[in-house]
Computed example of a mutant assay.
Amino acid sequence: MRITSDGKTAEVYTTAAGVEDVLKKAGIQLGPLDKIEPALTQRLTASADVKIVRVQRVVEETEHALPFETVKQADKTLPKGKEKVVQEGQEGVLVKQIEKIYEDGVLVSEQVLARTVEQESLAKIVAVGTKVEPKPVSNAVAVLAAETQQITLDGMTFGVKGVLKNVTLTAYSADFASTGKNKGDKGYGITASGTTVQEGRTIAVDTSVIPMGWWVYIDGIGFRRAEDKGSAVKGKKIDVYFDSESYAQKFGTKKGYTVYVIGPKKPVTN
């Protein structure tokens, strides 16, 4: 009879009649998963063929990337349409336990036995701006092109380019609380226009409303010159300079003022 096993076919001469006895005489051992034809209990004839298929079971673990999702969140502090990455995304790790079955060294089947998430993915978070930026404050009655009009205030007649209504006033000094600088620091007491601050003259303005270097008349305050600017001074808002920081703090915020925009030259009495 012929026995085919492990890729080889051999002639076996034996008086054994059963398959199991034939294999023992031939010194062939079966693995727990091996397949055999005919069955071990079957009796054989002298011309019978015995075929053994070696079966191997292998369990492997493989790692796979878990994609991260992108989450967009509304952010009212960002201008509308702007995006900002708040948190970078990170892929997770998925481990699969896979069973593979080989017959005579050839893969014939595989299946996933288990799935384990060893590391969760981290979502990418993107802030999406929803803040509607205020429209730019219109130039103070188009001061650069406006015609000069004559007015009389406190018995003094002078020309103005226009009038700003409902202006908000605040106050500041050259000290640390207002500017972040101390005496002796570089730029201490120096305005954005390069002048040295002076009480009774210097104010900080939004230069899109009042041009730098121009004079104004603030109702109830008097003549002041636009020599400085600040990040908090926007639109119809004016920061009035005082030497005393304590007075500047007591000044607080005052609303409803009328401001007359004059020009680059201070009016003088006739």
Rank of each mutant, 00 (worst) to 15 (best):
Ile3Asn: 00
Ser5His: 15
Gly7Asp: 07
Lys8Glu: 03
Glu11His: 07
Val12Ile: 08
Tyr13Pro: 02
Thr14Asn: 12
Thr15His: 15
Val19Phe: 00
Val22Tyr: 05
Gly27Asp: 01
Gln29Tyr: 04
Pro32Gln: 13
Asp34Lys: 00
Asp34Ala: 01
Lys35Tyr: 05
Glu37Val: 11
Glu37Trp: 12
Leu40Ile: 01
Gln42His: 05
Ala46Gly: 10
Asp49Pro: 08
Lys51Ile: 14
Arg57Asp: 00
Val59Leu: 06
Glu63Lys: 08
His64Phe: 11
Ala65Asp: 06
Leu66Glu: 00
Phe68Asp: 07
Phe68Cys: 04
Glu69Gly: 04
Glu69Arg: 06
Thr70Gln: 02
Lys72Ser: 06
Ala74Asn: 04
Thr77Ala: 06
Thr77Asp: 08
Pro79Lys: 08
Val85Trp: 01
Val86His: 05
Glu88Lys: 03
Glu91Leu: 01
Val95Ile: 07
Val95Ala: 00
Glu99Lys: 00
Ile101Gln: 02
Tyr102Lys: 02
Gly105Gln: 03
Gln111Gly: 00
Thr116Ala: 07
Val126Ile: 15
Gly129Val: 06
Thr130Asp: 09
Pro134Arg: 14
Lys135Glu: 13
Val141Gly: 12
Val141Lys: 13
Val143Leu: 14
Leu144Asn: 14
Ala146Phe: 11
Thr148Trp: 08
Gln150Cys: 07
Thr152Gln: 15
Phe158Asn: 01
Lys161Gly: 12
Lys161His: 15
Gly162Thr: 08
Val163Asn: 10
Val163His: 12
Val167Gln: 06
Thr168Arg: 09
Thr168Cys: 04
Ala174Trp: 09
Ala177Gln: 08
Thr179Val: 01
Asp185Met: 11
Gly187Thr: 04
Gly189Trp: 03
Ser193Leu: 04
Ser193Thr: 10
Glu199Gly: 06
Ile203Gln: 03
Ala204Gly: 01
Ala204Leu: 00
Thr207Trp: 03
Ser208Asn: 14
Val209Arg: 13
Met212Arg: 07
Trp214Leu: 08
Trp214Asp: 05
Trp214Arg: 10
Trp215Thr: 03
Val216Arg: 00
Asp219Cys: 01
Ala226Gln: 09
Ala226Phe: 04
Glu227Gln: 12
Ala232Arg: 05
Gly235Tyr: 05
Lys236Phe: 12
Lys237Gln: 11
Lys237Thr: 09
Ser246Trp: 12
Gln249Asn: 14
Lys250Glu: 08
Phe251Cys: 07
Gly252Thr: 03
Gly252Arg: 05
Lys255Ser: 10
Lys255Cys: 01
Tyr257Phe: 15
Thr258Tyr: 13
Pro264Ile: 08
Lys266Asp: 13
Lys266Met: 13
Thr269Asn: 15
